[in-house]
């Protein structure tokens, strides 16, 4: 596969204008995740009520893949049960992205989900 296949229009749009990007002042759960290998830096903020994800936002810096993936993951979990979010796997993120991810870039795609799950588990 070529890297170009990863940079579809929807991915680039999400990189330029990410979804759910910003601050949640009244977050009940928060986690900062950093990838020392590439410098991706994502903070996830979540509001959980009655075991349901009421709202979620993220901010930070990252590559197109990490920002697009964090956008799609946050968008997909709103209103979901906490246990369903915790059971999400890498394959779910790749499905959301709709592209093939080179193995060296998998970490980028997954940092958003990792931060979200750690926030929920209060790690």
């Amino acid at each position: 596969m070529s890297a170009e296949d990863m940079y579809r229009e929807n991915i680039l749009e999400l990189y330029n204008e990410p979804l759910n990007f910003g601050e949640l002042g009244d977050a009940t759960h928060k986690h900062h995740e950093y990838n020392p290998l590439c410098g991706d830096d994502i903070t996830m903020q979540v509001i959980i009520e009655d075991d349901i994800v009421k709202d979620v936002k993220f901010n930070g810096k990252g590559c197109a893949i990490s920002i697009a993936a964090a956008s799609l993951v946050t968008d997909s979990v709103k209103g979901k049960k906490v246990e369903d979010v915790l059971s999400m796997k890498s394959s779910d993120v790749i499905e959301l992205l709709g592209i093939e991810i080179a193995s060296v870039r998998l970490k980028c795609a997954l940092i958003g989900l990792e931060a979200l799950q750690k926030a929920i588990r209060r790690e």
């Binding site: 070529s2 890297a3 990863m6 940079y7 330029n16 410098g39 991706d40 590559c63 197109a64 870039r105």
Partner: peptide, 13 residues
């Protein structure tokens, strides 16, 4: 605006 990692991935092509 390109992130360095995206640049390196595309240069690999």
């Amino acid at each position: 605006k390109a992130h360095p990692h995206d640049v390196a991935s595309l240069l690999n092509d």
